[in-house]
Structure formats: C-alpha cells, structure tokens
Design a binder for these strands. Structure first.
Lengths: 112, 112
DNA sequence: TCCATAAAGTTCTTATTTGGAACTTGCTGC
DNA sequence: GCAGCAAGTTCCAAATAAGAACTTTATGGA
C-alpha cells in the first residue's frame, strides 16, 4: 500500500499522515516554526538531501501548508512561508516537542 | 543521513521523530489508542505488510512505548499494550486527528 | 575579463527500505 | 490427519532515499 492511498481514509489521523507523515516533512515544518524559510536553510538544518527537501517543499506547497513566494526577482529567489493551514499545525509539533523533552532526554550534550 | 541518527539531536521534536516519525509507526499507535493490541489487527487495520508491522512493533517495544505481554502460553501468543510513556503520546495523535478533521475533509465517503 | 561565491534546484548512480506473497511453527477442533 | 488461526520470518522485485556533482542566474572583486 502506498501512503498517498491514505488521503481518503476514514481516519483523520491517517489522512494527516498521508500528507505530513514522514520525518523530513515534519522536520521542515519544525524549521518553519523556528523562523526558517529558505531552501538551503532547510537542507542544512534537517540534514536531508537537497533532493528530499525539493520534493517535500513541493508537496507542502501543493497541500497549501506552505506558500512559495519570491523575495527576489533577478535572480529569482524564493522563500517558503506557513499558511494559516500550516500555522494551525503548530500544536501538533508542540506535543511532539513536549513528549520528546519528557521521554527522550539527551544523554550526551550536543554542543550547539 | 539515517533517521536513527536523530536520536541524540538537540531538538526534542527531532528525537521524537527518530522514534515514531513514520506513518506506519504512527498508524500502529493510533490503533493502540483505538483498543487494538494484536499483530494481525495492526496488519489488517493499517494496511502495512507483516514485515513492517513486525519491525515497527519491535522498535516500539524497545523504546518502551509498547509492552509485549503473553496472553496465551501454548501456543505462545502476544499482545502489545501501551505503557505510560506510550499513553502520554495520546495528545500528539489528537492534534493530528483534529488538524486532519479540520483541514483534510474526505471528499467521497468511504463505506466503513 | 576571469574567477569565486551564492541560492535554488536538478540529475545521476548507488544503497536502503518497502511491498507482496509464500512459508513456518505450535497448537485446537473436526 | 487435515484445515485453520495467530504471530511471525523469508524471499525477491520495486520504490525511495542517500550523496555528490552539475546547472542556472546573478553579484563582487582582482
């Protein structure tokens, strides 16, 4: 079964997962909430390959979770901004954050 | 980059994703909250292959999100129960559910 | 002029994960 | 002793992801 097949599933959790249910997508969204908006920022911050970043941003724009807006003509440069729909996903990431903070503490500190 | 490399990441969202950040894992957890507990229930309900179900359950048990308990000796049969740690993940699934209900309505009704 | 750098992607090849189906094991009941 | 169930495992083919290099459009020097 392909995960895009979940998009008409009876369960709203499954439908949500069909769209954002993979780690790279969710990490990119986290970065959006941290204020990032550019392609290379996402690539560097998440550690995903440029290929993946490209693919996931495309999906997110298609789903109207992000909006692609030009911040420079010549050379054409774009940034990605959360739409209202995207912003409303914030609480979900906060539950992930809280659960992670409580149940998955870091053993060895990471230096920034 | 492999997603298990995220488990010591500075970001609690990333650490959470390293553990549960894929659609099958999250669907299995959804099923647990719906009261399911057996291998075949997960396989049927999620549509994941038995291979995947086996792998994900192993991970979840290892992470102490689920607990594998025998409900029958001879033949040995097991069920998977949410631990306290697992139960506390409930709010995350609820935010997914709520977001899905609001932003991803089903177009054509699925007949149960 | 020529070279370096930057952003935002795309392309390529190789490795890893999935998908799908069949097989296994230990028992129960007919 | 054959069929069926539950809980997996094994196998191979197909899909996805990883990693690095390349492209395009433009700016800032030396």
């Amino acid at each position: 079964m392909k995960w895009t097949d979940l998009d008409e599933n009876w369960c709203p959790v499954a439908r949500t997962l069909s769209l954002v249910g993979d780690r790279w997508t969710l990490l990119i969204l986290r970065d959006c909430f941290l204020g990032m908006s550019k392609f290379d920022e996402f690539a560097t911050s998440t550690g995903a390959t440029r290929h993946i970043v490209s693919d996931r941003l495309k999906r997110l724009v298609e789903a109207e979770i992000l909006e692609k807006v030009a911040y420079s003509e010549r050379p054409k440069r774009f940034e990605y901004k959360l739409t209202d729909k995207g912003n409303e996903f914030g609480p979900a990431l906060m539950t992930f954050r809280d659960w992670g903070k409580k149940h998955l503490p870091v053993r060895r500190p990471t230096h920034a």
